[in-house]
Design a protein around this nucleic acid. Structure first.
Lengths: 142, 142
DNA sequence: CCGATTATATCGTATTACGATATAATACAA
DNA sequence: TTGTATTATATCGTAATACGATATAATCGG
């Protein structure tokens, strides 16, 4: 892609975009394998990360989790059920609004997430240069 | 994250990684919406892009498609069935190896993919700066 | 020419996300 | 206050799609 406005696409445009999507898939496949190797369905890993990685000021509720994972609220409900069954998270009643359930991670979840995050950051250190390059090529005249 | 070797994680590490995953989800959600607005299941869009964006030298077969989409071969078979039913792609017998089926896009698929690719490149021009920054933060001492 | 391998296909099943809907709590207007 | 709308979460049935196990046909290698 050469410019910012409507234009013709070259074969290279398609190839670079396809390569970019391929790189994203490889990263998520890495993440999926890492999660499953730790006995964790990948979406549960994403939930743990979203809960732990939430700016501390605001409470992490079912609804906020849904927003961060881009899933419907009832799907977040089901996901949190699975987390609770696995002993990874539990609902904490919110005293100010009894409709809301805050989410708290178990020690087991903290531990799993710690090692998962380490290997993910390590992997991203590997992948970042080529991802950044692909992004720059996608946005540059060439 | 501060360095390259085993280390302790800070709250910020979790937050940055969670934000990175959130950004990736937003991009794929954009892509999903764009595909569905064009009447295309997202995985069919990915297949079209993978077929079109394949370096021309090698033939694009069911098996290569599976590799590029990181799905099992039988899943690629089913996906190509759906593409064929939708009039988007067809199998072309490979004269050199009659086990193989090369894949060819229809004019309709080419047209859809062209407009899809334009909006995707446009979207990535928007998202690239913050993605690049997140990747750099993830890999930098701070 | 035959056993091993490769490429694709079929079938049954599991997972998971969602639409529709329900329930409980809160907000807010009159 | 009270009643109604709205918000937060939950339940249930269903649909989509990916995979494991397996099958078939073609090719390869000795």
């Amino acid at each position: 892609m050469s410019e910012t406005q409507p234009e013709r696409l070259s074969q290279t445009d398609y190839e670079v975009l396809a390569n970019f999507r391929y790189a994203l898939r490889q990263f998520t496949a890495f993440s999926t394998r890492a999660a499953q190797a730790a006995g964790l369905p990948p979406q549960q890993h994403q939930a743990l990360l979203a809960i732990k990685g939430h700016a501390q000021a605001e409470a992490m509720t079912i609804g906020v989790l849904a927003e961060r994972l881009l899933i419907a609220p009832q799907t977040a409900t089901e996901l949190v059920n699975r987390l609770a069954e696995a002993g990874l998270a539990e609902r904490v009643a919110d005293p100010h609004d009894r409709r809301r359930h805050a989410l708290a991670l178990s020690a087991k979840a903290e531990s799993l997430l710690n090692s998962m995050t380490l290997v993910h950051l390590r992997e991203l250190q590997q992948l970042a240069p080529s991802l950044v390059e692909l992004l720059q090529v996608l946005n540059r005249a060439d």
